[in-house]
Design a protein around this nucleic acid. Structure first.
Length: 286
DNA sequence: CGCCCTGTTGGGGA
DNA sequence: ATCCCCAACAGGGC
């Protein structure tokens, strides 16, 4: 479930509930969650501290507690945070927060999610800076930035978008969506994009993420298994993600293949295939 | 029933 | 720089 818009939605829903409360107990049921750090190190650093703010950077949720102690939660594929969940919804509970008597559960069937501890501002900055590039929702993703980063690179543009160290928070679905909106094929070598395409793609990434947040799909109270997808968030505003269905714009059948190691959906009319790959760098022409 | 494939992620090793 | 595989689990197709 959690792409950036879902993480942001969870953050917005949760922040008013948790900010100002004190973390009385942090029960880590799955020791893998804190690897390679020992669970008790995380527990001891956080228990008894007041939660000052719940923030987000990329797909990380950042709990800022007293004395500059931070807990960074990554939901990965199937993680979620549930406020006062029912027993059924909490079936895969991995971590339990006691916030002044209120229960918050980190649930994660697949157990990919992680919890990281960062004590002190520099430690937090070092952790984030090593992993995350510009924040698209803070106006940092511009066509000029994209073009500068892409220059000379041969990687498929989709792989480029998914690299968190360049642009923070673009996941598989939103990469497809942005490329569709910008009319760019996912396998296009990123260094061959024109200036206009870089501008269009930067705008499309921001627009797609913003649309996802506005759709406000994720909810912290409701976690189910729907249509084979954990979470059941409906991305109705996105390009079709079923092969064989018609493109909303032109009616061409959506095709699916693997790009950057992920399932990728494309309208090859709206997103023309790149010319055959060349050994030599291609010159950039419009 | 079993086997195989897939998956809204990121890290490590080749 | 780029690609492949892996973590662990559930559901669907055959």
């Amino acid at each position: 479930m959690p792409e950036l818009p879902e993480v942001e939605t969870i953050r917005r829903q949760l922040a008013p509930k948790v900010e100002g409360r004190t973390l009385r107990e942090l029960r880590i049921l799955d020791p893998r969650w804190t690897q390679p750090l020992a669970p008790q190190a995380v527990t001891e650093a956080l228990e008894g501290r007041r939660v000052e703010a719940l923030e987000r950077r990329g797909k990380y949720l950042i709990w800022r507690a007293e004395d500059d102690v931070h807990l960074l939660i990554h939901l990965r594929m199937t993680g979620t945070l549930l406020w006062e969940p029912s027993d059924a919804d909490a079936a895969h509970e991995r971590v339990r927060f006691d916030l002044d008597g209120a229960r918050l559960s980190f649930c994660d069937p697949r157990r990919f999610g992680t919890g990281e501890l960062a004590v002190g501002g520099p430690a937090l900055a070092a952790f984030l800076d090593a992993r995350l590039g510009v924040e698209p929702l803070q106006g940092e993703l511009t066509g000029a930035y994209l073009r500068a980063q892409a220059r000379g690179r041969t990687a498929p543009v989709k792989a480029f978008l998914l690299d968190q160290r360049r642009i923070a928070g673009v996941g598989n679905i939103y990469a497809d969506e942005a490329l569709f909106r910008a009319g760019i094929h996912p396998l296009r070598p990123v260094g061959t994009l024109t200036r206009a395409q870089c501008d269009a793609l930067a705008d499309a990434v921001v627009a797609a993420l913003t649309a996802g947040i506005d759709a406000g799909g994720a909810t912290i109270d409701d976690f189910r298994h729907v249509d084979g997808v954990y979470g059941g968030f409906q991305h109705d505003f996105l390009v079709h993600r079923r092969e064989g269905e018609p493109c909303d714009t032109c009616g061409t059948e959506i095709v699916k293949f693997v790009a950057a190691g992920r399932g990728t959906y494309v309208c090859e009319t709206c997103q023309p295939r790149p010319r055959r790959r060349r050994r030599q760098a291609a010159s950039v022409r419009s």
